[in-house]
């Protein structure tokens, strides 16, 4: 069971996470090789813009907008956040020396990791819930009683809550630190 969870739920996200770093190194290498390092300067604002777009999912989730299915928007959120993070990491790798941008990158890395973890835990919780439901239905108790006895539902919620404890504040802090970084660039830039 542990092996199955590891391969089904953890490994795919771990691969995507590692791919983020490998892709950053690769793009950084190519930009240096082609003497296009200056492009990294523009990848920061572009990546931030893409990440901001990915938050359409959060607006939908909080019922502020109602454009598409949450599932679709979650997929879009994951893809855009990954691409945007990649661009920001390339931007950071090319020219950053100060602590503030370093902090922003550290928070970004944690936010992405917590995002992947959240998605993984969600899948684990769903699988466990389904399994438990099947087992309970095999017994003589009614469906209503099964629903009542689905304490895994609460476990799922607990796990999700734990994940959100990290993901949401870190993302909020990331947003604010990024804002400080942008303001400092505007303040002291040319």
């Amino acid at each position: 069971m542990t092996r199955s969870i590891l391969f089904k739920n953890v490994l795919p996200y771990l691969i995507w996470y590692i791919a983020l770093f490998l892709a950053t190194i690769l793009i950084d290498y190519v930009l240096h090789k082609l003497q296009l390092v200056y492009l990294g300067r523009y990848l920061g604002p572009a990546g931030t813009f893409i990440v901001i777009i990915s938050f359409v999912y959060s607006l939908q989730k909080r019922r502020i907008i109602n454009w598409a299915s949450p599932k679709l928007l979650l997929d879009v959120h994951e893809i855009l956040a990954w691409i945007g993070s990649l661009m920001i990491m390339v931007h950071a790798g090319i020219h950053f020396n100060a602590l503030l941008p370093w902090l922003a990158i550290l928070l970004l890395i944690i936010a992405v990791a917590s995002g992947f973890t959240g998605k993984g835990l969600l899948n684990i919780a769903k699988t466990e819930l389904t399994e438990k439901k099947k087992q309970l239905l095999k017994t003589s108790i009614s469906e209503k009683e099964v629903e009542d006895k689905l304490f895994f539902d609460s476990i799922t919620v607990d796990i999700m809550k734990k994940w959100r404890v990290v993901h949401l504040p870190i993302t909020l802090l990331l947003g604010l630190i990024t804002l400080l970084h942008i303001v400092s660039v505007i303040m002291y830039g040319k």
């Binding site: 020219h95 950053f96 020396n97 100060a98 602590l99 503030l100 970084h181 400092s184 002291y188």
Partner: peptide, 8 residues
């Protein structure tokens, strides 16, 4: 110089 200095 530590927080926002973009380079030496």
């Amino acid at each position: 110089s530590v927080m926002i200095n973009p380079g030496q």
